[in-house]
């Protein structure tokens, strides 16, 4: 899987470039003789397609030259591309933002910190009391300093 990395990422870029260019075609053009707003996007799209094409070719070439050494390197790192902790972390991030307007900054942050710090702490070291205290105190302090102290507006939820 590793050895295909270059090709895959190049492929993803190519796809992105194609989509970007495609959408770019829908940008209205104004015929005043000068450059319209569709010009740069199309240009970027084309260049990226070229570059990703080059990356894919480079990847294929590297693959061919590495064919011989394949068997040995493959078994070394058995780590998968996407790790479960990462997925959970992203989910926490998304939930946090999603809940900001519902629960308000203070509550959402407390919940988020509870979850995130627990996720990041190794199983053996999880001290629940410490985590709860840190989450609550930090959130409250930040809220007080920025919302009350500096007058920065922070999301207010339906509940508060």
């Amino acid at each position: 899987m590793r050895k295909y990395k270059e090709i895959i990422s190049g492929g993803v870029m190519l796809l992105f470039a194609a989509v970007y260019f495609g959408i770019g075609m829908t940008i209205p053009e104004f015929n005043d003789g000068f450059i319209s707003s569709d010009f740069m996007p199309k240009l970027y799209g084309i260049i990226l397609m070229l570059l990703s094409g080059i990356q894919i070719i480079m990847g294929v070439r590297a693959l061919k030259t590495n064919q011989a050494e394949d068997g040995k390197t493959e078994t070394q790192e058995n780590t998968s591309f996407i790790v479960p902790e990462v997925v959970v972390a992203f989910i926490f991030l998304i939930l946090y933002v999603a809940l900001l307007n519902v629960l308000g900054f203070l509550l959402s942050t407390i919940l988020f910190l509870l979850g995130m710090v627990t996720l990041f702490t190794q199983k053996g070291e999880r001290n629940v009391v410490k985590i709860v205290l840190i989450s609550v105190i930090f959130s409250v302090v930040v809220y007080l300093i920025f919302a009350k102290g500096f007058g920065l507006t922070l999301p207010e939820g339906l509940i508060g």
Partner: peptide, 27 residues
């Protein structure tokens, strides 16, 4: 430990509710 945790959470929630809702109510 569970009781302690529950107790702390209650305090935390109350504190949060008090500080947070003060603003929420006015709108």
């Amino acid at each position: 430990k569970k009781k302690l945790l529950a107790g702390l959470l209650t305090i935390a929630m109350t504190a949060a509710a008090l500080t947070g809702c003060g603003n929420g109510g006015s709108s």
